[in-house]
Design a protein around this nucleic acid. Structure first.
Ligand SMILES: NC(=O)c1ccc[n+]([C@@H]2O[C@H](COP(=O)([O-])OP(=O)(O)OC[C@H]3O[C@@H](n4cnc5c(N)ncnc54)[C@H](O)[C@@H]3O)[C@@H](O)[C@H]2O)c1
Ligand SMILES: NC(=O)c1ccc[n+]([C@@H]2O[C@H](COP(=O)([O-])OP(=O)(O)OC[C@H]3O[C@@H](n4cnc5c(N)ncnc54)[C@H](O)[C@@H]3O)[C@@H](O)[C@H]2O)c1
Lengths: 258, 258
DNA sequence: ACGCCTTTGTGAAGGCATTCACAAAATCGC
DNA sequence: GCGATTTTGTGAATGCCTTCACAAAGGCGT
């Protein structure tokens, strides 16, 4: 979970932009932030196809959400639509870019250049969406010094220097789980404030640092859960505990006897 | 009812719930399911360290959540703790495994063996957490027929056969965005009901199919948003091209002039 | 047997998030 | 001009999730 930042400002002023504390951008709910990235992708796609204006209805369809939700999400950024017409694609693209802090290309460090790390190092989707991989870092002697996608792999001991030199605030961690906390600690003390973690482990960080994790096995497990449900497996009755359950087929409900 | 919580992503899903069989744990909230995977990982780690019993407090710490939340989550599976003592690690591990449908090793197909796909194909974290990669599929002539991590890459045209033969319900899509919807359609018509999508595109699927997406650039953009926030950039607060904003230091407010 | 101490399981409360539904705003055709 | 038409922006309602806080349950020592 992410640190306890965010929202909490019970700003008296309604969600409208005007007169908010200088340090604050109108509080954008966390769930909205996560979707802005999707809207942005859809908008860029539309822009490339020469579309100049889009309604909340069709943008919502393109992004796979409900249109009321989309409008509410966008309303947190301000009022950039035109009633009866829709949203100007380029204006809205720009607004979301600003909100997400992508106006400047952000420098990112990638730590761990094994199988996953090498795939990530060459991933064009980072550059095209606002991020520049500014440093490749590993600990393995065979890797340090080699060139990869235009960058020289550097040793993890130089991490602090690199972070400072390149003004890196965001790091991607793709080292084995056993090394992840150590790498994380080094990153934090070097001044990195945002970490995307691929290692299947919980990282401990001070509260001013954000961690997001990508856990592929967990994703599959969630799918597995739903799949299990869909194909209804009678199993699980094992329940060595103090429970028995009785199905009541006619209603589809379950009575639990304890 | 089980319905409407499968959506998560692209499609509003009205999951068809047929008469639910005699399993206990009926409605497990979606948020809980997502955390069960984390608890499971922590429990397996504890088990390997020889820990036999764990309290909600320490398991919660290991999983990075609040202990009340953990207890409530576990309570949806049934009552497997002992007051004053805690949870038996192996019993709880088993219960979560069952809930997630991991008792049988699930067969997974991986489509797209480019940079990312090859990294995924060799990822040990799938096998160790309940999944068996049962098929590698690509469309490129140079790849089809080659062996990779003990499997022969097969052509995407054979997809339907493979899915049937191996009883595959879950597929991982790692093809370029432009090919993703097509691959997805083939998967769905072959009978796959769960898809993990790495391509940065919204997949359209019928309501009985679950899609989860992994969008790395979006993850970075979310981090970027918070980072932007943290490093408080007052001049970006109002932030629109057609507006000017004036900081008013004495009050800490911003007046927006349009 | 009996209290003591620890820890679970869960009502209740409060926050967020989603969705509905509609008035207000803007354009367009006439 | 003006009414018809479209589509935004948003109160209000609803539901989901998190957190609090505590009674009940179980083990343990004496
Ligand atoms: N391979 C995948 O598809 C995949 C998928 C999901 C998650 N992951 C996770 O991502 C991480 C990396 O996976 P991988 O398959 O690339 O592993 P890998 O073993 O191929 O690569 C790990 C790399 O990290 C480097 N490394 C080790 N310790 C280091 C340290 N202290 N500092 C800097 N670099 C260090 C190693 O030299 C190696 O190059 C693992 O935690 C894995 O669980 C991998
Ligand atoms: N490389 C990364 O680190 C990374 C990270 C996140 C997301 N992604 C996404 O994952 C996907 C794959 O990325 P990549 O870097 O591995 O790309 P890639 O170009 O290296 O590999 C794509 C593979 O898909 C195969 N393919 C193309 N069309 C196909 C079809 N119709 N059926 C079956 N196979 C087909 C190609 O032959 C190729 O082997 C892309 O959508 C990319 O945006 C990649």
């Amino acid at each position: 979970m992410i640190a306890q930042r965010g929202q909490l400002n019970a700003v008296g002023a309604t969600v409208d932009q005007r007169s908010v504390p200088a340090t604050d951008q109108r509080s954008v709910p966390e769930a909205t932030v996560a979707r802005l990235a999707t809207y942005l992708r859809a908008l860029i796609g539309l822009g490339e196809h020469g579309v100049a204006t889009v309604s909340s209805e069709s943008l919502a369809t393109a992004a796979g959400v409900n249109s009321a939700k989309l409008r509410k999400d966008l309303s947190y950024l301000g009022s950039y639509g035109v009633r009866g017409v829709g949203y100007d694609v380029s204006v809205l693209t720009e607004q979301i870019n600003k909100t997400l802090g992508l106006h400047q290309n952000r420098a990112v460090a990638l730590i761990g250049l094994g199988h996953l790390g090498q795939a990530l190092a060459g991933y064009a989707g980072f550059a095209s969406r606002g991020f520049r991989i500014a440093a490749l870092i590993d600990a393995h002697p065979a890797l340090v010094g080699t060139r990869l996608h235009g960058l020289t792999v550097q040793h993890v001991d130089e991490l602090a220097d690199i972070v400072r030199r390149e003004s890196i605030a965001i790091a991607v961690v793709a080292v084995p789980a056993a090394a992840a906390q150590d790498v994380c600690d080094r990153l934090v003390s070097a001044g990195v404030t945002s970490i995307l973690n691929f290692a299947p482990t919980v990282l401990n960080v001070p509260s001013h640092v954000d961690v997001r994790k990508v856990d592929l096995a967990a994703e599959l497990q969630i799918l597995s859960f739903h799949d299990n449900r869909k194909s209804g497996r009678p199993e699980c009755a094992g329940a060595l505990g103090a429970e028995q359950s009785l199905a009541v087929p006619s209603t589809g409900k379950v009575a639990v006897v304890r």
